[in-house]
Write a protein that binds this DNA or RNA. Structure first.
Lengths: 230, 230
DNA sequence: ACGTGTGAATAATTTCACAGCC
DNA sequence: GGCTGTGAAATTATTCACACGT
């Protein structure tokens, strides 16, 4: 039983707009903090947060300062408290219901990915257009028919959608998702998608990441070749 | 103590180093260009590249100018040529052999992900510690025993490794991979990893992406209560 | 005309360095 | 002594605006 530590601040959302670079690092800090929590460690310095996130400690302190002054000078940060503050700033105190469209390899992997549940994202639906898959159980979900997209989204009150489908159909499904009123979309489709301005679209492309690695690897492994193109 | 800092490079040769932000956008342009190629479209403007990448056109032109002047004023860029130039700049003309460690849901999804092959990455091995999986066929690969990691990496001459495994074992496997001489690692493990400085590690965390979405969604749906004092 | 290429201007981000508090 | 919090400086990235070639 946790004794009364820090009085829960009556949510004031004292946070203004955070710099995008800060937002993405906050998720890294949060991950580290939750790991520390699990280990029972309750204090942490900007230095060690910095190390596990791979950034400088001044950067960490600056990021955290946007949330307010939750550290103790000469001591560090209290893990539980900081974790809660970051979660709050990121909007993770709300309930996020995620529908995954596409029950192929990736969609199935995502549907069973424990990391979602454990971090406050509730996977409420898994859809696919393939009639062979519709109705089958994957993880704890039954695959719904992608034809019923709008109905399923409404019924499950999903407020986020993950697109895990082939490039060919991504844009049309994306359009339907947008029309259904979803404004937060995470796409794993390896194609550019366009959405209205008020819709938030993030893209993850595994091959892209490998390409960036390739660029750096090339620079490490191979001497600067001179290639004056024909 | 590493003192690899170069205070200033008195270059006489054109600097080959690309800004990190440019490198990641180049992968987006490349994706678009390859799509255009497939459609048989052979010219493109910075404006339309910009649109599909979601950036400004001046940004595109600046990025491309680091590679040289491959556009034609008043006309645009020749799709095939530009595609090749970008691929070359990113080091995609080399042969990249990727070993995937972890044949769980995600590892399997990655092993069968067509996007790798089609973009010049050859998946040469899939490993797992689970004896139930070792020896089974996934996609066109037979799962190798993770105990034989070093041997498999050597035999397949893998030069990149993708970690698709649970957080608990990620660091130890990562260490072994590094010891085996791999210096380009893409991790999907939802934990911070530490590697020597000369090793290139990139991290993709699906939950992280959802968290960033959550932040923006929260700001859309629950407008910041404007109460600085009132 | 049109759209690239690019220096110059602006904005964002990171790093420095040190005052302030425990 | 140790470590946070934060203005100021440095660095990096984006945008502007227009000259230039086709």
């Amino acid at each position: 039983m946790t004794s009364a530590q820090i009085p829960e601040e009556p949510v004031g959302v004292p946070v203004r707009q955070l710099p995008p670079a800060t937002v993405s690092r906050l998720t890294l800090y949060l991950r580290t903090l939750n790991g520390l929590l699990a280990e029972g460690i309750d204090r942490v310095s900007s230095e060690s947060l910095a190390e596990s996130a791979g950034v400088g400690s001044a950067n960490v302190r600056k990021d955290l300062s946007y949330l307010g002054s939750y550290g103790t000078r000469g001591v560090g940060y209290e893990v539980g408290h900081l974790s809660r503050k970051i979660a709050q700033a990121l909007g993770l105190t709300h309930e996020w219901r995620v529908a995954i469209v596409g029950a192929g390899n990736l969609g199935r992997a995502l549907a069973r990915y424990a990391g979602f549940e454990s971090r406050g994202f509730d996977v409420v639906a898994l859809l696919d257009a393939d009639q062979m898959l519709v109705g089958t159980e994957i993880g704890w979900l039954r695959v719904s028919d992608a034809d019923d997209l709008e109905t399923v989204l409404a019924k499950t009150r999903a407020n986020m959608v993950v697109l895990a489908l082939p490039g060919g159909v991504a844009q049309s499904v994306c359009d339907r998702v947008v029309d259904a009123g979803i404004s937060s979309i995470l796409s794993f489709a390896p194609v550019p998608l366009s959405v209205p301005e008020d819709v938030n679209l993030r893209k993850v492309d595994m091959a892209t990441e490998l390409q960036i690695l390739a660029y750096h690897a090339q620079r490490l492994q191979f001497p600067p070749l001179d290639q004056t193109g024909a």
